[in-house]
Write a protein that binds this DNA or RNA. Structure first.
Lengths: 245, 245
DNA sequence: AAGTGGTCTAGACCACCAT
DNA sequence: TGGTGGTCTAGACCACTTC
């Protein structure tokens, strides 16, 4: 059988099916999912293929498996009941429930620091500033730096206002190589005056400062995002998991 | 063959071998590792077993694999050149290069908020306060809350001063079920007076505030750690990875 | 053409949990 | 005892890169 030409591998499709079922809440909290044997006959594939699909979901934290017992849905009580839980790169790429607004469109600037972070040959970088709203209230301003050639591809049209998308999410679709790494640095700073105004802070009030750098699969940095969060309206939430050894 | 009674599975042992080789720097940056075929003959196991071992290392971010080319070491330039990079639960459990100092030993207190976070039946919790030093300079104070019965097991003896260990790292050895989840919440606050003194801040100066809750494999919270970081001396560094799809 | 990793099959034995 | 997931084998074809 192997891989049908050009198509997604079977185990990815099965994982996708199960992920959709989980997101629709078709299984209740801590309910047992179908066993490997059941899914094997349902899809007509080998056990290994089913296990590959399950493995994807385990590493995403959606399910857990207990030897001798079965496969279970990770209880919602253990997933985020906060504004946002960032535990995977996928989380960084979509941010449902909030709207994005472009403050200043894509422009080419000269910025030595950003250019060097992006490993660019010159000091030229594309910059775009956006803010993000939750229930109509702004809570973050982000300055996004891109290699100039990528910035030029990113037309104003492809940056819809009032979107729940993220720039990095839009960006990845036009990249040849997928995003596989994100490096983040979180600290505290005081809000510059223009930023303070945009997130309803007093100037020089402490804010949360986040630098995020995204890398594609060959290690090339493709986006540097610098964000200022109003700490009264946002806290950075993160969950880490590991597999049982 | 299957699993030898009571022993670690073969693929874990192979992963361990490779991990040790990588940590010793036996392969240089972006050097090609042995192929599956080579390792298969070296260890005398099937290809699948080798792939399982590689998969562990990929998910830890130590190596990456390119179809048609080979398996490579993740360049050090893409791992942390900062004080600490926290991307996995393992990172949280060990903190080399810093020393821990106990500020106040394990005591049983009454704390409704911590007790409820730990799902405890009463308001009783065990509390211990520690600070951490980097090159002799303190940069964080942490209040650690534990279920009382776990706190009582944690003798003063088992909390050595001047250690590079972490409390959660020590703790896991005495738990029946391993730690598999950590939930963190990061925001900004002002330092309480006693905390400020311990991390060389002025009182009411903004500090980074981190709440961390650890869960074992059945979802029981086992530790709540509340930390105040001096932002001049520490920034929270994090890297996220994902597998190629 | 040869070699790499990616996917897949059809088996097998094991430890563990429930009945 | 029968079913679960965990580990493992010995094959196979595929797409891709390098030579």
């Amino acid at each position: 059988m192997a891989k049908p030409n050009g198509a997604k591998p079977m185990y990815k499709l099965i994982a996708q099916d199960l992920r959709a079922a989980l997101e629709e809440g078709r299984f209740s909290e801590d309910e047992r999912l179908p066993t490997e044997a059941e899914l094997r006959t349902h899809y007509g594939v080998s056990r290994h293929t089913i296990r590959q699909a399950f493995q994807d979901l385990v590493s995403e934290g959606l399910i857990y498996r207990l030897p001798g017992q079965g496969t279970f849905v990770t209880g919602l009580s253990r997933r985020g009941h906060y504004l946002r839980s960032v535990g995977t790169i996928e989380d960084l790429m979509a941010w449902s429930g909030t709207e994005m607004r472009v403050i200043s469109p894509v422009e080419i600037h000269s910025d030595q620091r950003a250019a060097s972070r992006l490993n660019l040959p010159s000091e030229e970088v594309a910059v775009v500033a956006v803010s993000r709203f939750y229930e109509g209230v702004p809570f973050v301003v982000t300055y996004i730096y891109l290699p100039p050639e990528i910035g030029r591809h990113l037309q104003v049209n492809s940056l819809p206002n009032e979107s729940s998308k993220t720039v990095i999410g839009l960006l990845e679709q036009s990249l040849s190589s997928p995003i596989t790494d994100a490096e983040q640095c979180i600290t505290v700073t005081t809000a510059p005056a223009d930023v303070a105004k945009l997130i309803d802070c007093a100037a020089d009030e402490p804010v949360m400062y986040v630098e995020r750098c995204y890398f594609d699969s060959v290690g090339t940095p493709v986006e540097l995002a610098i964000s200022y969060y109003n700490p009264k309206r946002y806290s950075y939430r993160l969950r880490l998991r590991r597999n049982l050894s």
